[in-house]
Amino acid sequence: MNDAVTILEGLLEARPLQQYHHHTPTRFEPDDQFLLTPHIRGAAMPSLARTLREHTITRSVVFCSPYLQIDPMIFWTHRSLGIPHASVAAPLQTPTAVELIKQIEPQCVLATVETARSLLTALDTAGIAHPPMWYLLRNTASVERLASDSLVHYDLHVVPGLSVAYQCEQLATESRERFHLAPELIWSEQNGMQYASTEPDAPLNFSAIPIFRNTTNQKCMCGKPAIAIAP
């Protein structure tokens, strides 16, 4: 458990949830301690929207665990951009995911590292070509990477649905762990530790929560600042 999640769960303990429309769990794996993170109605994922726009994606497939409850956020992101997509539950609907990829040939598959790995195996078994791009949601506490010849974008979430860092196409092509910090949050840095805050009216508002340690500020070739995260 990282510090940020402990702090967020502490904040959530004292809050009424019911006024919000949509929720995601605070942990990437279910246990008997997780809480729910509130999101506004029709909440989209700005990090995903940026990448879909950057690559002019017109068809995508989502293959995530239903536990994450993130499927509606992905849906609203696609709807806001007018991009048709399909979403199937990992791992139970793996054959359906394979059939979808075969038939609609998506330019992008959204998954987690774990579900992407299992889907790659299923695609290879079925003799279906890999998608040209993966967009992978990853826990900030994880450093897992997908071994793939396709372009892989990582989107780091501190809790499912709360993106804190993303990769532009340039960073996605690198083998180093470099990211752009999510511009929807307010960032401050001290001794390599990156702290995030929200606007006061955010459904889950917080101030100066430690998100990344051992970072160095760098510049990406896209022109925006980036951080490198030491292993």
Binding site: H21, R41, P66, D71, F75
Partner: peptide, 19 residues
């Protein structure tokens, strides 16, 4: 599933939903 089916149905009426 997909969860968004019910989420989309709930959205106009400000109803809460989990899947």
């Amino acid at each position: 599933y997909p969860h968004f089916g019910m989420d989309e149905a709930c959205e106009p009426f400000k109803l809460g939903h989990i899947g």
